[in-house]
């Protein structure tokens, strides 16, 4: 009886494993195709049927991309913008989330829902008004033109995420700290922050990714070629009539390196953080 059960569960596990493997293959195929093409010279037209390993692999695409005007500059611009955005988003959303989680003040619920409401509006509908505001603030072609917008965008979601996490932390810790004479800021800094590294890492990785990958706003607001970011620099390798896909894929691979590194570095916290607050509802 027991062994029959075990056999059944083993079969189920095998089936699950098969499905997961198939999913992994499907998810990896485009990535492998991209890597293969990146090492191919003159890939204006993609092979049919797709070929994953080039006949004569070359690193020319990588050297061409790096040597092209503005690519290295764009990489550094993106890095600066993404790091600044990550800092501001993490710091501000943590403080806002703490306030929403622990303080009682008039209009708290209403304010929270208004903030969540902002998440429901597609960013694209904002672009023209946003541009007009940015222009009146003198932001086009300034780093702040990107950092401000990239920070404002994900604040609502991250505050929502962190509030759930903070609320799940035991109140008793804070109460005993209060009795010991700690201020709210001390509690936030000494208790809440250290206990929330998984959630904060999630926020940091997400906001870094968002700022690193953003394209339309960066294209619109940064018209000085020397101040453009990486996604725009990569898109500029595309032509109206002919595009060297090897070059696009090689430069995209370069762009993926920091995000993958970041993900691996935070992986331990990341998966933990994603599910945090889930049970709290």
């Amino acid at each position: 009886m027991i062994s029959a059960n075990r056999r059944a569960s083993r079969t189920v596990n095998l089936i699950l494993l098969g499905i997961l493997c198939a999913g992994a293959v499907i998810a990896m195929t485009p990535m492998l195709f991209m890597v293969g093409t990146a090492f191919k010279a003159n890939a204006y037209l993609l092979d049919f049927p797709p070929r994953f390993i080039p006949e004569t692999p070359t690193i020319d695409n990588f050297t061409t991309a790096i040597a092209s005007r503005n690519f290295v500059g764009a990489f550094l611009n993106s890095a600066g913008v993404a790091v600044a955005t990550t800092f501001f988003v993490t710091a501000l959303s943590a403080m806002m989330a703490y306030a929403f989680a622990r303080f009682q003040f008039r209009g708290k619920q209403a304010l929270f829902y208004v903030m969540l409401g902002m998440m429901m509006v597609p960013a694209m509908t904002f672009i023209i008004p946003q541009f007009i505001v940015a222009r009146s603030l003198g932001l086009p072609n300034k780093v702040w033109g990107l950092v401000l917008v990239y920070t404002a965008g994900p604040l609502a979601f991250n505050t929502f995420l962190l509030r759930g996490f903070f609320e799940a932390l035991p109140r008793e810790l804070e109460e005993s700290a209060l009795i010991d004479g700690a201020s709210h800021f001390t509690i936030f800094r000494r208790i809440i922050i250290p206990l929330s590294t998984p959630a904060l890492s999630t926020v940091a990785v997400f906001s870094f990714l968002g700022a690193w990958d953003e394209y339309i706003w960066a294209l619109t607001v940064m018209t000085d070629p020397a101040r453009r970011t990486l996604p725009v620099a990569i898109a500029n390798f595309r032509g109206a009539h002919m595009t060297d896909w090897g070059l696009i894929f090689a430069s995209s691979l370069i762009a993926v390196v920091p995000t993958v590194t970041l993900f691996i570095a935070f992986q331990r916290y990341f998966v933990q953080g994603l599910t945090s607050g889930a049970i709290k509802g």
């Binding site: 061409t64 092209s68 018209t223 500029n236 109206a240």
Partner: peptide
């Protein structure tokens, strides 16, 4: 402003 591909 134009749309000449950067490396073209």
């Amino acid at each position: 402003w134009h749309t000449y591909n950067e490396t073209s």
